[in-house]
Amino acid sequence: MNIKLNSIVTAMAASFVILAVAADDATARGFGGGGGGARGGGGGASSFQGGGFSRGGAAASGSFSSGAARYGSAGGGSSAASASVASSRSQAAQTASTNRSATAQTASTNRAATQQGWQSTSTANQAQRQDSSAENQQQRQATSSQNQDQRQNYSNQNVQTRQQTAQQYHGTYPPHAGYYPPPPPAGYYNNNNNNWDDGEVAAVAVGSAAIGAVAGYAAGQSNASESQSAPATTVVYTAPPPASGGLPCNPNTSVVKGVTYYQCGTSWYTQAYGNGGVVYMPVPAPY
């Protein structure tokens, strides 16, 4: 009797452990742990199909400096997804932005000392970092609450300012046709400008221009088919392209001044090259 009970308990425990390990492995395989990944490529979960996932973000820039999580969230990024996604990203970017300012302040105050340290000996650097670290920690703790209050105030102020600015822009829409970003002055960058590749500039600059809703687009003149360009006042309707391609409808296609426009209802789009590839951008009606 004793021997029988002993065997039963042992067998049950062993079965339980084997089942648990097997279930663990199955879970890992099921979620892409076995190879192929979750993007539907080569054995991964095919339901994901790759579509609908953002390819953007701070790390997509591959830059040695960062505007945090705002890369590709606005102008020209193929990662610009639905409005709700954009909205949630915008909130994230705001939070990141405020955090970044605080971090940047601390880092800036310490950079001179740290870079000076680069010039001196290793031992001196280490001592300096330790001192600096302790001081910084105290400073951060002391100013943390103050910064938080400040950020909240700034945030409210910024929201008001943005709303006012947006209203002003909408009030003057469209300001003028044929707008083109002014060329940068020669030698506009130098070694002190460390942010030329941080991606954040892109989001802010394009976002600002977009709020302005400036009419006109003269950059995309067709080169290969220039001889086929229609006169300025002529609109050529061609057969609609295939239903795919990223537009929300089967669009009517017009070529005006060599630029191809796509019409979905009252909305007009044109193709452009952004940081995530070719995208359709909403534009004012070409005529």
Binding site: A81, Y179, T270, A272, P284
Partner: peptide
Amino acid sequence: RKIAFAAQVTSIAPAAIATPE
């Protein structure tokens, strides 16, 4: 076909950029 760089196209609403995704 030659198209513009997105940064050179002024759009109506940044959130409305149409992508396949």
